[in-house]
Design a binder for these strands. Structure first.
Length: 534
RNA sequence: GGUCGGUUCGUCUAACGGUUAGGACACAAGAUUUUCAUUCUUGUAAUAGGAGUUCGAUUCUCCUACCGACUACCA
């Protein structure tokens, strides 16, 4: 039987990184089994619909490289999924709002077979009952006991029920939880579980007010119709698993009931509770894959993509948050994750997100990029005035030099700006520390030394490979040889030069800088430094 | 409150019932280096508590504590 799994988000806002992880695990599972990964939009809550959220979900998945085999629409030409029902695509449509007419008959079928009933209690009446129970330190639940005294088709005469259905539109259809049973369940991650039906409540399955099903009904009906074989979802659904088991049983679909796997939650890096939107703002990291602008408030939430994370790094860190391969390998591409993944190795407990590790993952992928790839990413970050003044080769070699100093490509400019322009100011403390009379006169001597000698510097004939093989050695030997012969302290005059080259005394190596900026610029920067510090 | 789930270094995690409880991130120290960073080496650091089963428990059972989810005509 073909494996068919689904990711079924609700378009009520931007997709959370925990949601992306759920999608990822579903995707990996499907691909490993040679099956299908389906994207279904659960938009049965008309109240909470947020415009743009659906596109955001699609774009997030596309960014991560998680392509649904079946689902809605398309994004930037990246998805080419049929969303119209056809012979080739019998499971469409994939948006629950477009499947609206489907659900009521299933709810009615349950009533006909005695597994559900009409309920006419108003929302106000029920919330009043809840409030009263709370005041008495009790909990009101609509269940096998209380249903006997409430307004529903179990207590009202048939003709009145009929009349209410026809004349009012605030009624619901509720599932009739069987009394005194034990539901035995199995979870692929957690194993066996049991729940007493008497602790469950009669959930609403369908609402006359908007003619829409609730999650529970739509979910079971669609998973059945779409022939889903495994349901991999967040642990917040665990408490409704008994209801879902009972629904499958009531429909007579036990034979084809999917297997379930509940993923633990992503927790806050500090303190308590699950990771929420606010944590990102507070702790300085994104909670969402992509930047999101709230259409109502204009409030902006940052995204991993915009913060400079590579999708490979994001996917990798998400995969390892709550799952491990059982080996010591930590770096996985999406392709490598497919054969390695297994639900058996998914962790039961909640995983706390850690920003440092996230950065480390990005660093690893940064280092794996070619100089040419990095150069292409770097160019747009250059200031407008100089953006087109440097060759691809120059940028590529610069990237090769600096990539081990960065976690993100967006740090490149800060690290390497001295290779593009002379400093406009010198750090005061460094000036005090390193511009001693001795150091200045030594720098003057080195200016002369550099002027009188020749050595290789960057040209477009070079490649990053021959840069690595030591083009700077000549410069290095020239300088250090001279300094050592003079018995000067290396850490003194070198830092004076660095100050003249970069404006401070931290960062790139002296010979690397000279190699890139060339002899003339080198002499000019030393001259300028000597002249301005007197 | 009730129901369900969970608990190994600060964090992510590994460990057929038998290990000096392993790795990674972070942190610290040392080495290399002209500075910073990289790199290399080393180190600090954990089985929530209590019973029980067992020759032997991180692992199985129970109790307690703590954490979390759910408790809507939301998903």
């Amino acid at each position: 039987m073909e494996t068919r799994v689904r990711f079924a988000p609700s378009p009520t806002g931007p997709l959370h990184m925990g949601g992306v992880r759920t999608a990822l695990y579903n995707y990996l599972y499907a691909k490993q089994k040679g099956g299908k990964f389906i994207l279904r939009i659960e938009d049965t809550d008309s109240q909470r619909f947020v415009p743009g959220a659906e596109d955001y979900i699609l774009e997030s998945l596309a960014w991560c490289g998680i392509m649904p085999d079946e689902g809605i629409a398309e994004v930037d030409g990246k998805f080419t999924i049929a969303s119209e029902k056809s012979e080739k695509n019998p499971h469409a449509p994939y948006r629950q709002s477009e499947r609206k007419p489907l659900y009521r008959q299933y709810a009615e079928q349950l009533i006909a077979n005695g597994y559900a009933y009409y309920a006419f209690d108003s929302a106000e009446e029920l919330s009043k009952l809840r409030a009263e129970a709370e005041a008495a330190k009790q909990t009101f639940i609509y269940n096998y006991e209380s249903r006997k005294t409430l307004k529903n088709s179990l207590t009202l005469p048939a003709d009145e029920v009929k009349k209410l259905i026809e004349t009012t539109d605030t009624w619901t259809i509720r599932f009739k939880i069987p009394e005194g049973q034990t539901v035995k369940m199995n979870d692929l991650i957690r194993g066996e579980m049991e729940v007493e039906t008497n602790t469950l409540d009669d959930k609403v399955l369908w609402k006359a007010a908007d003619q829409l099903p609730t999650y529970h009904l739509a979910n079971i009906v669609d998973d059945h119709l779409m022939e889903i074989t495994e349901v991999i979802r967040g642990a917040e659904w665990l408490p409704s698993l008994p209801l879902h088991y009972l629904l499958y049983k009531a429909f007579g679909w036990e034979d084809t009931m999917p297997r379930f796997a509940h993923l633990s939650l992503l927790l806050k890096p500090d303190g308590k509770g699950k990771l929420s939107k606010r944590d990102g703002d507070r702790l300085g990291f994104p909670v969402f894959p992509l930047k999101w602008t709230n259409p109502e408030t204009g409030e902006i939430s940052r995204g991993y993509r915009e913060d400079g994370y590579y999708p490979e790094a994001f996917v990798n860190l998400l995969a390892l948050l709550g799952w491990n391969p059982g080996t010591e390998q930590e770096l996985f591409t999406l392709e490598e994750l497919i054969p390695a993944f297994s639900l058996e190795r998914v962790i039961k407990s909640g995983a706390r997100f850690n920003v440092d590790k996230a950065k480390w993952f990005n660093e690893q992928y940064l280092r794996r990029r070619t100089p040419q790839q990095l150069a292409a990413e770097f160019r747009p970050m250059l200031p407008d005035e100089i953006r087109d003044k440097f060759s691809d080769k120059y940028l590529a070699e610069v990237c090769e030099l600096i990539k081990e100093r960065a976690h993100f490509a967006n740090e490149f400019w800060d690290i390497s700006k001295a290779l593009f322009a002379a400093p406009t100011a010198y750090d005061e403390n460094d000036v005090k520390k390193f511009c001693t009379p001795d150091n200045l006169s030594h720098a003057e001597e080195l200016h002369k030394l550099i002027a009188e000698n020749s050595f290789p510097t960057f040209t477009d004939e070079d490649t990053p490979e021959n840069y690595k093989s030591g083009c700077c050695e000549k410069i290095e030997e020239l300088l250090t040889g001279y300094i050592k012969a003079k018995e000067w302290k290396m850490g003194q005059v070198m830092n004076t030069l660095r100050l003249f080259f970069t404006g401070n005394t931290r960062g790139l190596g002296i010979s690397d800088i000279i190699y890139f900026i060339g002899k003339d610029e080198t002499l000019s920067r030393i001259r300028k430094g000597l002249d301005s510090i007197k």
